[in-house]
Amino acid sequence: MHLDPFELHRPTSVEETVGLARSLAGRFDYLAGGTDLLPNYKMHLNLRPHLVALEAVPELTGHSLERLGAMSRLADLERDPALAAAWPALADALREVATPLVRASGTVGGNLLVETRCFFFNQSYFWRASLGFCLKADGDRCHVVPQKTTCYATFSGDLAPALLVGDAEVEIAGPTGRRRIPLTGLYDAGGDGIRRLTLQPGELLVAVHLPPRARGRRGRYLKLRVRPAYDFPELGVAVAGRWDGDGRVQELRLAVGGAEPHPRTFDDLTAPLEGQRLNDARRAALGEEVARRVRPVHNTFLVPEYRKKMVAVFVRRALAQAEEGRAA
């Protein structure tokens, strides 16, 4: 399979990148690890005439316990024991992404911004043409929930839930300068599978900041998929928290990905648990409530009824395993 011709840009600074983005407005994609973008390009999904490769921008690379450059390779992060000890849910998630070969190229930024997925979108041009295309590429209707306005493609990154429960923030550079927002704010909770990010045209994800206040939380990321390799999440549940010596919750975060067009947190459900001891019943009740809110649709391999049911099980398990302090 070949790629259609495009112009390749290889900026060497954030400023140069943002400048390019401005001049190429709407006619480019950033190229990070390429493990998601290039298959999509090979399938002629939303091609742009310019690619801006980010691997030569030094500020985007490298990581510490406080900061993950957007171009940090997942394979490098996975091999850092200090990072794993400090951020156990993240460590779980890193190991669960696709395959070691994908992780060799795949990046933090790429995983956070990964294109949403759907059986009717992640197909060749030929395949999609045969159905008359869809909202998300070249068409004007949805084959999952037939209508003409909302895309149900599923957010399929593993890192987002794990970083959300670490209260991560993202640093964004754009034409008007830099801004730093909570990771929750990156995902447009009011959007859909197409309008899914709050990034403005030309903005660049520079880094993820891991706040020291959340470091060392016990945590867990559990991923539902058919096989223990290759697959995107059919559901991803992350939990992180602290417990006092009496087993009372001091702080607790929960996030769910892989089930809807964007990952999300459930602070309104977890906050009331602070100061309480969790037991099986409380964990189960939380799981049921989260499951009630999460609404997967039939656009991945496993049926949505099952994925919804598993939300409750995964939440309960992730809570219990995080509290046990299961080693990352």
Binding site: R10, L31, G34, T35, L38, L51, L101, A104, S105
Partner: peptide, 13 residues
């Protein structure tokens, strides 16, 4: 030195 998918790597990079 790291195993990588050559089918998803732009040669120029």
């Amino acid at each position: 030195g790291r195993p990588t998918l050559s089918c998803l790597t732009l040669a120029r990079l």
